[in-house]
Simulated scan of single mutants.
Amino acid sequence: MTVLAACLVFAGRMLAVEYDVMRTKAASVRQAGGLSGYQDVIDSNRPSEALPPRSALFRGIMRAHAAAAEPGKAAALLRLATADMGHALAARPAWGEAEVSATYLAMLRDGPEAACTLDALRRSYSAAPFLRGSAPWRIRYAASVWRLLDPAIRSRVVDETVWLARATDHTYGYARGLVAQTPAAPLVDARLRAGTD
């Protein structure tokens, strides 16, 4: 009987966590789609540590996007987003999506050429060399700071761009467009012509 009760308590907690994550993710989708009904998540005073890591990640991303859209509130929102992202990464070190989000956050907070932003980009590639959802932003950002990247990171950017180009018939031109008119473009084109991964 005690084991059954413990199992029920555990299942109840897991359901609560999943509900929290789904609610926060849905708010994030509404924000990204330009819809209403997400501001309460951004404004929540619930401490980062009280959130499931995935909820912290979604809320941190939402706050970062809000900071980019509301310069008057940017400093406070970036502080809150940094706390959310810190909790997500502390709970799940080397989490690719969180590392890319941390790069975006560092870019907003410290600038695209700041050492901490470039370090965050490096960590994101170490955590996950290929990320379907985040690849376009990461490739575009990396191409914009190409001259500041070391050869190892440049190689990873080319790898990810080639991977994205070959993912489907529809992504070939799109992926090449992400690096068009940048020093990465000839390297990507050469790899695509060579037909080697």
Rank of each mutant, 00 (worst) to 15 (best):
P136L: 11
K73V: 01
A11G: 02
R23T: 14
A142K: 10
P53V: 00
R191L: 13
R79Q: 11
S28N: 04
A194H: 11
R46Q: 12
L148S: 10
A68M: 08
L187S: 13
A75I: 03
A64W: 14
S144Q: 03
Q31H: 07
D43V: 00
A83C: 05
G12E: 07
G34A: 06
V157G: 04
L4D: 10
E70D: 07
V9D: 11
R123V: 03
G60W: 02
A102G: 13
A180R: 15
R156Y: 05
Y172W: 10
R123N: 05
P71G: 03
Y141A: 03
G173Y: 13
A68H: 10
G33C: 04
V158W: 01
V157S: 03
I42A: 06
T182K: 08
K25H: 13
G60N: 02
L192Q: 01
V29W: 07
F58A: 15
S124I: 04
A152I: 07
A16W: 15
I61E: 15
A76Y: 04
L15K: 15
A6Q: 13
I42W: 04
A98E: 01
R122D: 07
T161D: 03
A106G: 02
A114H: 14
S134G: 13
D119T: 13
D84C: 07
R147F: 03
R132E: 08
E49V: 06
A167H: 06
A75C: 01
M62R: 00
L80I: 02
T103A: 15
A76Q: 04
S36M: 10
V162I: 13
A88I: 03
I61R: 15
V158H: 11
I139H: 12
L131N: 15
T182S: 14
A68N: 09
G72T: 00
D40H: 14
R154M: 08
A27P: 00
H87L: 00
M14H: 14
R13A: 06
V9G: 05
P52S: 14
T161K: 06
A91I: 02
R156D: 11
V100P: 04
I61N: 15
F130S: 00
S48N: 06
R123E: 06
G177L: 01
A11N: 06
R30L: 01
C116D: 12
A184L: 04
S134R: 15
G12N: 03
L178Y: 14
D84K: 02
P183A: 08
L35M: 02
K25M: 14
T117F: 12
Y174M: 07
Q181P: 03
T182G: 05
C7I: 06
